[in-house]
């Protein structure tokens, strides 16, 4: 069984079967297939090798392959689970699944924590938070005095660092997010529920009918 199209895509490095990925994520098989359309577009925008390189990710996010950004770097690093400098299809789908509207809030909380734990210490430290605020200000061409930045960071820490040890641990992060649910709004992409409408071409070739 299988058509020429299917045989062709199986040769791409890092390709995984949509049925397998759908079983492990919030996506249906059709949605994974539609995501493959998006993945193909992103992974061939500069280097046609079926892998998303950092420059291709930046090009998709900023319309400029040279635009560096702390947060885009962090997202890329988290998507690049194998830490080999590129995002493979399976990594792309599993990571994007965190942003699916149906994914458990606990997964989103954990992903956001890892995103903001810049140095992988298991804590969001004060210096890391300040570094992120400064990066955001620079990105936005906003100018705030160091005193104001310190005050913003201090205030956030006074609310989030419940045990006052100068760093935010996972439990404190969970409590802080529970009190400030809007912090997770960028962890959900409504588009992902309509992905088969946005990228419908693969659906014509779909071998498997979704059961739900």
């Amino acid at each position: 069984m299988g058509c020429l199209f299917t045989k062709h895509i199986k040769q791409i490095p890092g390709y995984e079967e949509p049925t397998v990925l759908a079983g492990e994520t919030s996506f249906t098989v059709s949605e994974v297939e539609a995501l493959y359309e998006l993945f193909k577009k992103l992974s061939s925008s500069i280097i046609v090798d079926g892998l998303i390189h950092k420059e291709e990710f930046q090009l998709a996010l900023f319309k400029n392959s040279n635009t560096r950004n702390l947060f885009a770097d962090r997202i890329f690093d988290l998507f690049d689970v194998k830490r080999n400098g590129v995002i493979e299809f399976g990594e792309f789908v599993r990571s994007l699944s965190v942003f699916h509207p149906n994914t458990a809030i606990s997964e989103k909380i954990e992903f956001a924590f890892r995103l903001y734990d810049l140095r992988h210490t298991g804590f969001i430290e004060r210096e890391e938070l300040k570094e992120m605020v400064l990066a955001l200000l620079k990105e936005s061409d906003l100018c705030l005095s160091d005193d104001v930045v310190e005050t913003i960071v201090d205030k956030t820490f006074s609310e989030a660092d419940l045990n006052g040890d100068g760093k935010i641990d996972r439990e404190e992060w969970k409590e802080f997010v529970a009190r400030n649910p809007s912090l997770l709004k960028n962890m959900t992409l409504p588009y992902l529920k309509d992905i088969t409408i946005a990228f419908p071409s693969f659906v014509l070739y779909s071998e498997v009918e979704d059961s739900d």
Binding site: L38, L42, A60, L61, F62, N69, L70, F71, A72, D73, R74, I75, L96, F99, L115, Y116, L129, M132, V133, A135, L136, E139, S140, L144, V148, T151, I152, V153, K155, T156, E159, A160, F176, N180, S182, L183, K185, N186, L189, Y191, I195, A198
Partner: peptide
């Protein structure tokens, strides 16, 4: 008043975290 901003709220507005852009044609 900027001093009342939650630092994480501020950060979450980063364009680098707006993955919706990936879906733009």
């Amino acid at each position: 008043r900027p001093v009342m901003m939650n630092a994480f709220e501020l950060i979450s507005t980063s364009q680098g975290l707006n993955l919706g852009t990936l879906f733009e044609k």
